[in-house]
Amino acid sequence: MNSGVEKVNLLGLSRARMEAFFESLGEKRFRASQVIQWIHQRGVDNFDEMTNVSKVLREKLAEVAEIRAPEVVYHNISQDGTRKWVMQMSAGNSVETVLIPDGQRATLCVSSQIGCSLDCTFCSTGKRGFNRNLSAAEIIGQVWVAMKSFMPYDRNKERPITNVVMMGMGEPLLNFDNVVDAMSLMMDDWAYSISKRRVTLSTAGVVPALDRLGDITDVSLAISLHAPNDELRDTLVPLNRKYPIAELLAATRRYLDKLADKRKVTIEYTLIDGVNDKPEHARQLVKLLRNVPCKINLIPFNPFAESTFQRPSMERVRAFQAILSHAGYVGTIRTPRGDDIDAACGQLVGQFEDRTRRSQKYIAVQQVG
């Protein structure tokens, strides 16, 4: 019996960790591939269904391990086809995960933390504070839940999820090891087999962790920039005070230099009416990025209740884009998706206990104002 001993959740084990787990049981390493395939490709969470695993081993696994995914407490589909899940984690805490369909492409936006320890002024997640990092099982569990919702499907003919972006709640590089393990499963041929070009990590700029990331993996990279100069970015992305733009872009170039292929970084730039959307900002951005191989994703601000910021007119957005295009940059405008179910960029909040008390302070300030 396994009385009183916490079972190992196999859902979040990377290939290396799964192989080590089976070796600890006195089993061959190839069992890792079998079990990873059952869990992630077939959506199985019951050892009895693993028919190519011996009955003796299935019984042993049931005694010492489990396959436990986050519990879905809410699921909704937007008018534009965007899907949002709210997934329960622990102690009443939950995170939000969004799937955005776009023709033959379907991008899953995955959370890495319960809340966010950063306090970007234009993001509703940051205003709600921070509780904790997600485990690797809780991160990859979001992919597992979303993929399972489409089963059964023919893997050889269709892919319900073609891309994964670590752009949900939280700063991925502040939960480094768990995020890396989860991304390795996303790319594992026996799990989700998603190309490294289609797994993207988005960071606000934790420079030391970004340098470390380049030594471990070669996923695609997105930088949450949102301002063309330090003075403005200090107010929008407080992390900039610790790692200013020059340091961040230098680390970005180092990351790109480590990649075997010629890939561009995606620069994310949320346009806020009257704040960072003026022609001079666009011209500063052109100059700033001249030595960075990149494409620029322009994101019209998505309003939320606690913010006084406004979305700029499409005329201003297109004028900003035109300056970038004239300078030779690819500047795409992200069409707001899922905003009728609060699933758009910057709107994800979930429900959680805020250990930072930031949410209470922010509400108090709003009431006084």
Rank of each mutant, 00 (worst) to 15 (best):
S135F: 08
N52W: 01
A137Q: 11
P101N: 06
Q37N: 15
G103N: 13
N52A: 05
T97F: 04
V64I: 13
L61C: 13
F122I: 09
E138Y: 10
R68F: 12
V64S: 12
V164Q: 07
G115D: 03
H40K: 13
T125C: 05
Q142C: 03
N46F: 11
A91E: 15
P160C: 10
Q88A: 14
K60I: 00
D154G: 02
T121A: 15
T97V: 08
L99M: 11
Q41K: 15
W38H: 07
A91P: 00
V145R: 11
K127L: 11
Q37C: 14
M147Q: 09
R155T: 05
G126M: 05
R105D: 11
K84S: 05
S117T: 14
E66I: 14
M151Y: 09
Q104H: 14
K148V: 01
E49R: 15
T162A: 05
E96T: 06
A32S: 15
L108K: 03
V56D: 04
S124H: 13
Q37V: 10
C116P: 08
S90G: 08
R83S: 13
K157E: 12
N156S: 14
V98I: 07
Y74E: 14
R68A: 15
V143K: 02
K127S: 09
T51Q: 13
M167Y: 10
F130E: 05
C109L: 08
S54F: 08
W144A: 04
D154K: 07
D48K: 14
W38E: 09
L108P: 04
V72L: 12
A65K: 13
I139L: 02
I67A: 05
T97D: 03
R132E: 09
C116N: 04
L99W: 10
K157C: 03
K60F: 00
M169T: 09
R128P: 00
A137D: 15
L61P: 07
G103A: 09
L134G: 02
S111T: 06
V110Q: 00
Y74P: 02
P160W: 09
L99D: 11
M151D: 05
S111F: 07
C123I: 02
L108I: 10
E96H: 03
P101D: 04
I139A: 00
T51W: 07
L57P: 01
M89P: 01
N156R: 11
P70Y: 10
T51A: 14
I140W: 01
G81H: 11
F130Q: 04
Q142P: 00
K157G: 01
R155D: 06
L118H: 05
S112E: 03
V143D: 01
G103I: 10
Q41S: 13
D102A: 14
Q41F: 06
I36R: 11
Q37W: 15
D80F: 03
I139E: 00
C109V: 12
M167L: 09
R105P: 06
L108D: 02
N46I: 12
V98C: 12
W85K: 00
I114R: 00
I161E: 12
M89I: 15
N52K: 10
G43P: 09
K148Y: 03
D80Q: 13
S78G: 12
F130R: 01
